[in-house]
Simulated assay, not measured.
Amino acid sequence: MTAPPLDPDAALRLDHQLCFALYSASLAMTRLYQPLLNALGLTYPQYLVLLALWEQDDVTVSVLGDRLGLDSGTLTPLLKRLEAAGRLQRVRDAADERRVRVRLTADGRALKARAQHIPGCVLAASGCSIGDVGTLTRQIRHLRERLLAGA
């Protein structure tokens, strides 16, 4: 991969780094979510797991990991904590004992109603319109895809 010529001094300025802009925005987003999720007894990664399961319940651990971009070493402890909290259950697949399926419990499904306000809170804090947030989300998703393809 060949990069265009850059002014070396400008290229190394912190405020010119895409990685720092994404990193610092991610930290700010996590800080915004923290009190919202604390009220639900969730961490941010646990919330992401539940979001994925609210979209599609009863999936294998590998499907869930692919959806979230997490390996099993990261995902398994999250699932164990959510299972211990009564939010989901992990069961061996009847058709293939090597696979583990993840299913929401009644408590995990009910938590969705308690989380309904979170996207609106995040939208309000962003100061962006719904359209702007959608555009930004698509741009970041495309960036991620390009970065993964180039890695």
Rank of each mutant, 00 (worst) to 15 (best):
M1S: 14
M1W: 06
P4T: 11
P5M: 04
A11Y: 11
R13E: 14
D15R: 13
D15V: 05
H16S: 13
Q17S: 15
A21S: 14
L22T: 08
A25T: 13
A25C: 03
A28Y: 08
T30M: 10
T30D: 11
T30A: 15
L32Q: 15
L32P: 00
Y33E: 11
Y33L: 15
Q34H: 12
L36N: 03
L36R: 06
L36H: 04
L37Y: 07
N38G: 09
L40I: 00
G41A: 06
G41T: 01
T43K: 12
T43Q: 08
P45R: 07
Y47C: 11
L50T: 05
A52N: 02
L53F: 05
Q56T: 12
Q56G: 02
Q56M: 08
V63W: 04
V63L: 09
L64G: 01
G65A: 06
G65E: 01
D66C: 07
D66T: 12
L68S: 00
L68Q: 02
G69T: 00
L70V: 00
L75H: 04
T76H: 05
P77K: 02
P77W: 08
L78Y: 01
L78G: 00
L79I: 05
L79N: 04
L79D: 01
L79H: 02
L79W: 03
E83S: 13
E83R: 15
A85F: 00
A85T: 04
L88E: 04
R90A: 07
V91Q: 10
V91Y: 03
V91A: 09
V91C: 05
A95M: 09
A95N: 08
E97Q: 14
E97M: 14
R98P: 04
R99P: 03
R99Y: 05
V100R: 05
R101I: 06
R103P: 02
A106T: 15
A106Y: 06
G108V: 00
A110Y: 01
K112H: 12
I118C: 13
P119H: 07
V122G: 02
L123D: 04
A125S: 10
S126Q: 10
C128L: 15
I130Q: 13
I130G: 04
G131P: 03
V133R: 03
T135Y: 08
I140D: 07
H142K: 12
L143D: 10
E145W: 05
E145G: 01
R146M: 13
L147S: 06
L148I: 02
A149Q: 15
G150F: 13
G150I: 08
A151V: 09
A151L: 15
